[in-house]
Nucleic acid binder design. Structure first.
Length: 1020
RNA sequence: GCGGGUGUGGUGAAAUUGGUAGACACGCUAGACUUAGGAUCUAGUGCUUCACGGCAUGGGGGUUCGAGUCCCUUCACCCGCACCA
């Protein structure tokens, strides 16, 4: 009987669904285990083979944990708000909700494309997700609670004294009694006020003040505005100065926006990393992003003669110990004091410099760091310790946005300061003992300080402490910790996102009452911004709040609303809002009264294993940690880190065969010599008809097989077109691409075959033997535009889900990036077929197992018979598979299974006692075939909740050990000796061996190293 | 520049604590079986040498009886950050 994987897989997938095999119980005597995947954005392109990689690994782990007796929560959902569905809406008018539904559930889109649907694609792979817990962030029942969490953030402030977020009421209480003088909060700059003042203010005034304290707050901020996308972007959505999505330019713009006071959590987000089982790389990226620097903030008084200002310049430094090395000051060109302090003589030069700096984009400024530029303001500050006059310069190496926008320049200890001083001929003071700074600054932190009054002879570390003490004593500054982390902009000028539960009365925001949530996205006619530049929600007719009747009402566009009716917020929330807490909702996905019930979150706790891409290091992973800490502060959840252990799966890259044409490429017009995977085909059968679509341009010439060739060749697959894209080479112009008769000039082309995975070898063979082409594989990102996408569906169709699952794991370590290559899939498929045959060794290959037990003697030690070889093979495999999965090495168990099946096949083993446990350990990797054979063995329950077998060491004990015998570390021969032989006896035995005599050459060995059960090394 | 990672046959890779480098697969070679092969089975396959042997884990050095593994140094590639004071 053949291994009919298609039938078997359909059968069991249906069984699992009908029996809710993978439903997690919300309480259980079993220990809990929470395995989570980063949920996908359901794009219209569907899944390619790279997407399931992490899901397969997490599924194997979830199944493994179930077999070990855990109550496993393994859910899946969709991060379904996002830009692509909105852009599709702009193009086609199809509502993003429809697009999203089709992308998830399958169907036909507005342009007639058949969409397989994420769910269908996922189901085919046989995942053990508990689909009853599915969440979609764009579902009103879900974003109701995203809005609710927003309200909690709005109604909270960060108390630095208790070091946690608290309800805003506790702050208002303090204001009423003491004003804000004693309040120790993380807030936007506020002036001090008394209780009397607070109490005297009206509602509006009080709200304005409170806004400075709220954890989510509205403010005019400089934001990253992306004109092409028509929206603002968070810092983590920008890469290299352009938008991460689309690569559009980004500019700075002052806008009234919601922000999240994530900076309040900077220290906890940093220190919390230590306890997480994440890779160092991700932790470092987060540490870097938070960017903590410890130092001092100090004021330099501006020297009176140079300006009427009596002000001071505040600087931040991490090296207060170098205070006596200050040789000049540098302000950012945008620093507000520059205009005030510049002397009339320097005015022209400074203004010219400011203007030049303002014209440079952020990007130019970064790429132009080798050019040292600056201007002297003519002004001076007084050195707080020496009383010396110190020149004030401006220079664009000082950033307005970091610290105070001003630095005290210590050229002897900072290379940038040194370069600046050297360039402009400013005198450099050296305060490092015995350090030569004539060639450059001494930036190490191990120097001893000199020429520095009270800091003399102190090592830097102590000098820093002493300097801060002294600075604070004199009241000219204080120790300070600075973070690079900025508050996160939370408004997006988009349609397809969560609406804010906010309405405005005279520009003061108020929250929609919780019982009125969710505030559902309104219908709009156009998904574009309004004509007067308002976000798309400005187009909504029904988008006002009736405060008294507590409902959304319609006010015609452009009309002034009647009293008691107020306009709702027009922005929507960013993509990361919904994904910052979704792992909590899986615990209680249908709860209408709470975002998650207390007893459920108390039971499930945080995620034990989180698998997903490393690209979310500074976005999702930071925001989710932030919200988790916030919800913890307010007592809603019992933990303050969401993901205990995380593994970042590597990217699966696409491979394109590049064709190098090294000789004249002769064909008839519109014909191209191509390959035929059939080795025996005659040369002329290898000719296929190309069709070049001029509209595709030279980069995307498509080549189609002609029908007659397809017939000759006899492959069904060739009826599909095989796209070939020709990569433009610098020696080639686009013209030569239009007609294939001009192809002589071509040097290089990319070949990618759609569904062509299995005949790549033949393809290569043909071209290598030809004088026309040489192909070389090139690794690229897998994407539709590169024609190198392979969907899991086609592989499941051809080889089955179990093969796909095992193969994706077999490719290599999970974390590693790897090019997709299907050549090896036949090996894995062959293994499953071989496994199947192991259970079908009866007559006519019918199902057969031998029920007679392997005999064991009374003391539990195995019976000495030939049958034991099978048991040994099995138990060795049990041990390895368990240990490997536990250390998240998902690739190595596949080879262990192969070895085991190869051995059992060679032994013609068909004992139930061996074959039954083998299925259990294999089930996480290949659940369908395992279920099928498990059922054939007579089991009536799913293998999902079987017990993972324990290996028995008794089967693994060897009576003899084959010792590799080395001479001077070089392995020379093997010698089989009893395993329990003593060191002395082994040494004697080895030296007496005739082969050893040859290597000893009559000499007496200097030393013999014997490691029992391992090796013998003779030193001659 | 700083931080993190990777480097092993023709290919993907194994080698968990220093102990036979290349398991397991792919590919390739030869053969068997077959109407056929993208089926199945057998044998071989790191490089080099007629052979004994020699050489091999990016390069160079070191520690050790013994190094892919530990230490120093250097190169290449990938990822992140980047005048962050």
């Amino acid at each position: 009987m053949q291994y009919q994987f298609n039938e078997i897989e359909k059968k069991w997938q249906k069984y699992w669904e009908e029996n809710k095999t993978y439903a997690a119980k919300d309480n259980s005597v079993k220990p809990k285990y929470y395995v989570l995947d980063m949920f996908p954005y359901p794009s219209g392109a569907g899944l390619h083979v790279g997407h399931p990689l992490g899901y397969i690994a997490s599924d194997i782990f979830a199944r493994f944990k179930r077999l070990q007796g855990y109550n496993v929560l393994h859910p899946m959902g969709y991060d379904s708000f996002g830009l692509p569905a909105e852009q599709y809406a702009i193009q086609t008018g199809q509502h993003p909700a429809v697009t999203t539904k089709v992308n998830i559930e399958g169907g036909v889109d507005k342009q007639g494309n058949v969409i397989a649907g994420y769910r269908n694609q996922l189901d085919k792979i046989g995942f053990s997700f508990d689909w009853d817990r599915e969440v979609r962030t764009s579902d009103p029942n879900y974003y109701k609670w995203t809005q609710w969490i927003f309200k909690q953030l709005f109604n909270s402030w960060y108390n630095k004294t208790t070091d946690k977020a608290e309800k805003i009421d506790t702050l208002i209480e303090q204001f009423k009694i003491n004003g804000n003088v004693a309040v120790n909060a993380v807030c936007t700059d506020v002036v001090n006020f008394s209780a009397a003042e607070w109490n005297s203010w009206g509602e509006e005034e009080q709200q304005k003040v409170l806004m400075n304290y709220r954890i989510t707050f509205l403010s005019d901020t400089w934001v990253n505005w992306c004109p092409a996308l028509g929206t603002v972007l968070a810092n983590d959505e920008i890469k290299d100065g352009v938008s991460e999505r689309g690569g559009h330019p980004v500019e700075q713009k002052l806008m009234r926006q919601w922000s999240m006071r994530i900076t309040a959590y900077a220290e906890r987000l940093l220190s919390g990393l230590d306890g997480l089982d994440w890779t160092d790389s991700i932790k470092d990226i987060q540490r870097n992003w938070i960017g903590k620097s410890v130092g001092a903030s100090l004021r330099f008084t501006i020297s009176p003669p140079s300006g009427e200002s009596e002000g001071a310049i505040e600087v931040f430094t991490t090296r207060p110990d170098t205070i006596f090395g200050v040789s000049f000051m540098v302000l950012a060109p945008e620093h507000p004091l520059v205009n005030e302090i510049t002397t009339p003589e320097q005015k022209a030069e400074v203004e010219a410099y400011q203007k030049a700096a303002s014209l440079k984009s952020e990007r130019d400024r970064q790429s132009d760091i080798k050019n040292i530029t600056g201007a002297f303001t003519g002004a001076f500050v007084i050195h707080p310790f020496t009383g010396d006059k110190v020149q004030i310069w401006i220079g664009d190496y000082v950033l307005a946005s970091y610290g105070t926008g001003a630095v005290m320049a210590v050229p002897c200890g900072d290379q940038r300061d040194w370069d600046f001083a050297t360039h402009f001929g400013i005198e450099i003071k050296n305060i490092f003992k015995d350090k030569d700074i004539s060639e450059g600054a001494y930036a190490e932190k191990d120097a001893v300080i000199a020429n520095s009054d009270f800091l003399n002879d102190l090592p830097a570390k102590e000098a820093i402490k002493k300097a801060i003490t002294e600075i604070e004593k004199r009241g000219i500054g204080k120790g300070k910790t600075q973070y690079r982390l900025r508050d996160a902009v939370f408004s997006r000028q988009r349609y397809w996102g969560e609406p804010f539960p906010v309405y405005y009365k005279n520009e003061v925001p108020y929250l929609i009452p919780s019982e009125c949530l969710p505030i559902e996205l309104p219908e709009v006619e156009k998904y574009l911004p309004t004509e007067d530049g308002k976000p798309p929600l400005g187009n909504a007719k029904n988008w006002h709040w009736d405060e008294k009747n507590k409902k959304i009402v319609s006010v015609p566009v452009g009309q002034k609303p009647p009293s008691g009716i107020w306009g709702l917020e027009l922005n929507t929330m960013p993509g990361w809002a919904g994904s910052s807490w979704y792992f909590l909702r899986y615990m209680d996905p249908t709860n209408n009264n709470e975002f998650v019930a207390k007893e459920k979150v108390d039971y499930w706790q945080n995620v034990d294993l989180y698998i997903g891409g490393a690209e979310h290091a500074t976005g999702h992973l930071l925001y989710a940690r932030f919200w988790t800490k916030f919800l913890y502060d307010l007592g809603y959840i019992p933990f303050d880190e969401p993901f205990k252990k995380m593994i970042n799966q590597g990217m699966i890259q696409g491979v394109s065969e590049k064709i190098m044409m090294n000789k004249t490429f002769t064909t008839e017009t519109n014909r191209v010599l191509l390959f035929n995977p059939n080795k025996s085909a005659s040369p002329d059968q290898r000719i296929v008809m190309p069709y070049v679509d001029e509209n595709d341009g030279y980069q995307d010439a498509h080549i189609y097989y002609s029908k007659d060739v397809a017939d000759n060749v006899g492959f069904e697959t060739v009826e599909k077109h095989v796209p070939i894209s020709f990569v433009q080479n610098h020696e080639i112009n686009s013209e030569s691409m239009i007609g294939l008769s001009h192809m002589e000039g071509f040097k290089k082309a990319v070949f990618v075959c759609e569904g062509g995975f299995w005949y790549k070898g033949a393809f290569k063979r043909f071209f290598e033997g030809s004088d026309k082409f040489i192909t070389t594989p090139e690794v690229e990102k897998m994407s539709k535009s590169k024609y190198n996408v392979q969907t899991p569906d086609e592989l499941v169709e051809k080889f089955g889900a179990d093969t796909l699952r095992c193969y994706e794991m077999f490719l290599g370590p999970l974390e590693q990036h790897k090019p997709w290559d299907t050549q090896g899939i036949t090996g894995v498929h062959g293994f499953l077929k071989k496994l199947w045959r192991l259970y079908h060794s009866g007559e006519n290959e019918s199902f057969y197992v031998d029920e007679t037990p392997i005999l064991a003697s009374a003391d539990g030690s195995p019976h000495p018979s030939g049958e034991l070889e099978g048991a040994k093979s099995l138990h060795k495999t049990i041990k390895k598979v368990k240990e490997d999965i536990e250390r998240f090495s998902f690739n190595t168990p596949v080879s262990a299974f192969m070895i085991c099946v190869n051995e059992l096949t060679a032994l013609k083993c068909n004992k139930r006692e061996i074959l039954e446990p083998l299925l259990i350990i294999l089930a996480p990797y290949a659940p369908h075939i395992a279920e099928e054979l498990w059922a054939k063995l007579g089991n009536t329950e799913s293998i999902t909740y079987a017990v993972f077998p324990k290996h028995n060491d008794a089967y693994l004990v060897e009576s003899n050990h084959k010792y590799p015998v080395s001479f001077n570390g070089k392995m020379r021969f093997m010698l089989e000796l009893p395993a329990d032989m003593s060191k002395e006896a082994i040494e004697k035995e080895v030296l007496a061996n005739e082969q050893a005599q040859k290597y000893l050459e009559g000499k007496t060995p200097k030393k013999v190293i014997v490691i029992p059960q391992k090796i013998v090394n003779v030193v001659v």
